[in-house]
């Protein structure tokens, strides 16, 4: 403190000079427009340069924090992506000849292996046997028989049915069925051993059975079972449809359905 005082005493004249000059310049700047403008033009450029440098340094010093924040955000997004239901739902596509007609489920599957479901409408609304039925954009079943105002639906939860499908949109075709045990688990049979079936992979219709267009969601892979020496493996699939909560249905109609059916029949030998 004493040294500071001595320093001030030693430079008292210079400090007084600086103080008086500061007062004079401030009076000048306050009262002279040109001087004020020129002064602020120069000091503004300097201060903006300093601010810019400070901002750059500040950004540089905060890079590590930003990095941590970005890594956390990245991890959150990746988790969200992995847990996200990636399955898309099939929508009406009249350009390809497919259209849908809405209906209501009257009686749903009860978990027994051979139970059939009932829905409206029926023949009066153009529903015919063999049509695919969707629930929430995912495969629900197929029309097995029709009355005037009602339809009988063969759902995925019927142990006597098989559905042509594939794992992913480009996998080999396999057959999906239900073993009649667990209503939450369907079985994909005859899947070639080399096919990669990872839990979470989507299973789509192949379109080969003419009931559904291709790439309609059926479910997602739960597990796969490879037996030693076997060429095929068994894949467990969770249905995309909640059979206990389904109310609204969509009947899939193809414009040239009768023609397709006729052409798909085995050719009669003369």
């Amino acid at each position: 403190m004493r040294n500071l005082w001595l320093l001030l005493q030693r430079n008292a004249f210079t400090l007084t000079f600086i103080a008086l000059m500061a007062v004079s310049v401030s009076v000048l700047l306050r009262n002279n427009g040109a001087a004020r403008s020129s002064w602020f033009q120069k000091t503004g450029a300097v201060s903006s340069m300093i601010d810019e440098q400070r901002h750059e340094w500040s950004n540089y010093l905060h890079l590590s924090e930003e990095n941590v924040q970005l890594a956390a955000e990245n991890a959150a997004l990746r988790s969200q992506l992995l847990s996200m239901n990636m399955a898309d739902t099939w929508r009406e596509d009249t350009l390809l000849g497919w259209s849908v007609r809405s209906g209501m489920l009257i009686k749903g599957p009860d978990g027994k292996p051979h139970t059939l479901s009932l829905a409206t409408p029926g023949r009066a609304e153009g529903i015919t046997p063999g049509m695919g039925v969707l629930a929430g954009g995912a495969a629900f079943g197929t029309v097995e028989d029709v009355g005037e105002g009602h339809s009988r639906i063969l759902t995925l939860l019927h142990s006597g049915t098989a559905w042509s499908c594939r794992i992913g949109k480009g996998g080999p075709v396999a057959s999906l069925g239900w073993d009649g045990r667990d209503v939450n688990v369907l079985q994909l049979n005859d899947v070639p051993r080399h096919v990669q079936a990872t839990p979470g992979d989507s299973v789509f219709t192949s379109g080969y059975d003419l009931r559904f267009p291709p790439n309609v969601l059926l479910g997602t892979v739960i597990d796969s079972e490879r037996k030693p020496g076997a060429d095929f493996m068994k894949v467990s699939v969770a249905s995309a449809v909640d059979f206990n909560a389904t109310q609204h249905l969509e009947f899939i109609i193809h414009r040239a359905d009768s023609e397709r059916v006729v052409l798909a029949q085995p050719e009669l030998q003369p």
Partner: peptide, 11 residues
């Protein structure tokens, strides 16, 4: 002339 002579004379 507020400030001009102050600056010059102080200098």
């Amino acid at each position: 002339t507020y400030g001009q002579h102050m600056v010059a004379a102080t200098a």
